[in-house]
Design a protein around this nucleic acid. Structure first.
Length: 415
RNA sequence: GGAGAGGUGGCAGAGUGGCCGAAUGCGAUGGUUUUGAAAACCAUUAGGGUCGCAAGACCCUCGUGAGUUCGAAUCUCACCCUCUCCGCCA
């Protein structure tokens, strides 16, 4: 949510920002409503003041004022309803350094890092490799759950635990607080996080039958509301969390896209970072999250590139987003594996998370970033670490967690 | 799932129709004292909104929402949450 006062005082800036985000909302209508609201409010408040002053001195007159207030209130309520609904529809505005553009085609590649592996054979696609080694079973998953599901089996399952352990080890050292959060949250919390404001957004969520709960699409949605309604002390900031959770996504807008394998599935596990900080520190914090993501990639020795998303491609709550795309030699392209966003005070306003500084009480900024999205990391590891003989080498940093160095057919093969 | 108790400021806790945005204690902040600290003492200390250049004035908020009343933390209803006991259960 944007600050109404800010909108009032920066009309052109807001309109510009909305245009950059490819969103069309009538700001003039919003401002007109705001104007009427304040007029109406003044009238009602002065009546109330009069009523309060009267006390029990003139009960008949007080009754008259009461009736008058009652007659004015419905109009105000209507105005506020429309005003709030308009306010809710506004996305966060992009920061100044965000590349202006329509969609993902306008994203800007900032840099490429790591060495792409060289093969003296034609590298295979992760599905082909993992089918042979019986690591990923999408056929049986389709039988049991439908399309866009998968079973991770054998070493793939163990590799997931290794990745989780690596992420938690690295992030604990950075003083992140480890969390395993609920994956079902109240719809009002999902709303406060800014993920069900539009019909398209709603279609992406799994709402539970009881109507009160919704499955998270990322643990960010569960961690953010932890501090809902709280006023934090400045000395407790930044507050950094690392959370592991399963994530659930309808992938409603993705018909026909990435239908094979486990690149885009309804359910996957993810280690996610979420931090809360002072407004003036959020850009720096965003760089920290990105740096940690890159560090994790470097530990795995995976080739990747960093992309600054264009204004038209970033999510509603975000003011600036960097993606990390990892090189997949089997598919000969970079695919998104990480995403980190600075949501500034957008979520904090709706969640009502503030902090107390010397100057006063102010809204915090919230940020989130992927540590590891497990499925996609498995894909990246399998394709980058594949060997000529069809086996997969385990990245060195993970070996101490897995206990094995190579995944190949042999005594471990299963049915 | 059944029975009972309860939700008040940063925390603890009083308050059962106007004198209450709210006693008291703790904490926090500033000050006095001290070589420094502690202790003691003094002062300040909820959030939001409207108007205003400002000083300030006024309005709203005691889990949430509706209601009764000239007037609600206090009475009524609904909902949410927490705790205790019983049942069930990984």
């Amino acid at each position: 949510m944007l600050d109404l006062k800010f909108i009032r005082q920066n009309q052109e800036k807001v309109k510009e920002g909305l245009a950059k985000k490819q969103v069309n909302i009538d700001i003039d209508r919003l401002l007109a409503l705001d104007e009427t609201r304040r007029e109406s409010l003044q009238k009602i408040e002065s009546l109330r003041a009069e009523q309060n002053k009267l006390g029990k001195e003139d009960i008949v007159k007080a009754q008259g004022i009461k009736a008058e207030i009652k007659s004015l209130e419905p109009a105000l309520a209507d105005i506020e309803k429309e005003l709030n609904s308009l306010l809710r529809q506004l996305p966060n505005l992009p920061l100044d350094d965000v590349p202006v553009g329509k969609d993902e085609k306008d994203n800007v590649v900032l840099r490429e890092e790591g060495k792409k592996p060289k093969f003296d054979f034609e590298p295979k696609d992760y599905l082909a490799i993992s089918e042979k080694l019986d690591l990923i079973d999408v056929k049986r998953a389709a039988k049991v759950s439908g399309t866009r599901f998968g079973y991770l089996k054998g070493e793939a399952a163990l590799l997931e635990f290794a990745l989780i352990n690596l992420a938690f080890d690295v992030l604990s050292k950075e003083r992140f607080i480890s969390v395993i959060p609920p994956v079902m949250i109240k719809t009002e919390m999902m709303e406060a996080m800014g993920y069900i404001d539009t019909p398209e957004d709603r279609a992406e969520r799994y709402f539970l039958e009881n109507g009160k709960l919704v499955l998270v699409g990322t643990s960010e949605q569960s961690i953010g509301p932890m501090h809902q309604g709280e006023i934090l002390e400045e000395k407790d900031l930044p507050r950094r969390y690392v959370a592991f959770s399963t994530c659930f996504r309808e992938e409603a807008g993705a018909y026909g896209k990435d239908t094979k394998g486990i690149l885009r599935v309804h359910q996957f596990d993810k280690v996610e970072m979420f931090t809360i900080c002072q407004p003036e520190k959020s850009q720096e914090e965003h760089q920290l999250l990105l740096k940690i993501e890159e560090k994790l990639m470097q530990l795995l020795k995976l080739p990747y590139r960093v992309v600054h998303l264009s204004s038209g491609d970033i999510s509603r709550p975000s003011a600036s987003t960097y993606d990390i795309e990892t090189w997949l030699p089997g598919q000969k392209e970079y695919r998104e594996t990480h995403s980190s966003s600075n949501c500034t005070d957008f979520q904090a306003r709706r969640l009502d998370i503030r902090y107390r500084s010397k100057i006063g009480v102010e809204y915090v900024h919230t940020l989130n970033g992927t540590a590891f999205a497990i499925g996609r990391m498995l894909i990246a590891i399998i394709e980058n670490y594949q060997q000529k003989d069809g086996s997969i080498e385990v990245p060195k940093v993970l070996q101490k967690y897995t206990g094995f160095k190579r995944i190949s057919r042999g005594p471990t093969s299963r049915n």
